[in-house]
Computed example of a mutant assay.
Amino acid sequence: MDVTSVYSFSELMIYIAISGIIFGVGSAISAANKGRSIFLWFLIGFLIGPFGFILSLVVAKNTNAIEEKAINSGEMRKCPFCAEIVKSEAKICKHCSKELPEISFDLASQKIQVKSIHDAVYEGNWSLVNQLLKEGVDVNQINPEGKTPLEIARERGDNLIIKLLISNGAK
Rank of each mutant, 00 (worst) to 15 (best):
I112E: 14
F23C: 07
W126Q: 05
K134S: 00
K34Q: 02
T63P: 07
A120C: 09
N64W: 02
V137R: 05
K91T: 14
G136E: 00
S5P: 01
M1K: 08
L128G: 02
S30V: 01
F9Y: 09
A32F: 09
E145H: 13
L164T: 02
G20L: 00
E11L: 07
R36C: 00
Y15I: 15
L55P: 00
N143H: 07
W126N: 06
H95L: 07
S73V: 12
V25T: 13
L128M: 10
I162P: 05
L55G: 04
L55I: 00
I117D: 07
S167P: 07
K115E: 14
E123G: 11
P80V: 04
K134Y: 01
L43V: 15
L150N: 02
V25S: 11
D2A: 10
N72F: 00
G49D: 04
V6E: 10
D2F: 11
I103C: 02
I38F: 15
I66E: 08
I44C: 02
K69Q: 13
K61L: 03
S127K: 10
H95A: 10
L55Y: 01
A17V: 14
V129M: 04
G52T: 00
S167D: 15
S8L: 02
G52A: 01
A60I: 11
E151G: 14
R154M: 08
S56V: 00
G52K: 01
V86I: 13
I103D: 06
L150P: 05
S27G: 10
V114K: 09
I22W: 06
I21F: 13
D106M: 11
V59E: 12
K134I: 00
I85T: 11
S8F: 01
S10L: 12
N140V: 03
L47A: 12
A28L: 06
E67M: 08
I22R: 14
K34Y: 02
V86R: 05
K69W: 08
T4I: 06
D2Q: 08
L57N: 08
R156T: 09
G74P: 10
V6Q: 11
E75S: 13
Y7G: 07
A90K: 15
E135H: 01
V25E: 12
R36D: 01
F51N: 01
L47P: 06
A31S: 14
A31Q: 03
L43F: 14
Q110N: 12
K94N: 13
I54F: 02
I152N: 08
E145D: 15
H118I: 04
A170H: 06
I66W: 12
N130H: 13
S88F: 04
K34P: 02
K98C: 06
Q131D: 07
S27T: 07
P144G: 05
T4Q: 13
F9Q: 03
C96Q: 06
G169K: 02
L150W: 05
E151S: 12
L57P: 00
Q141P: 05
A70F: 11
E155Y: 03
S167W: 09
K115L: 11
K87Q: 14
E99P: 01
G146T: 10
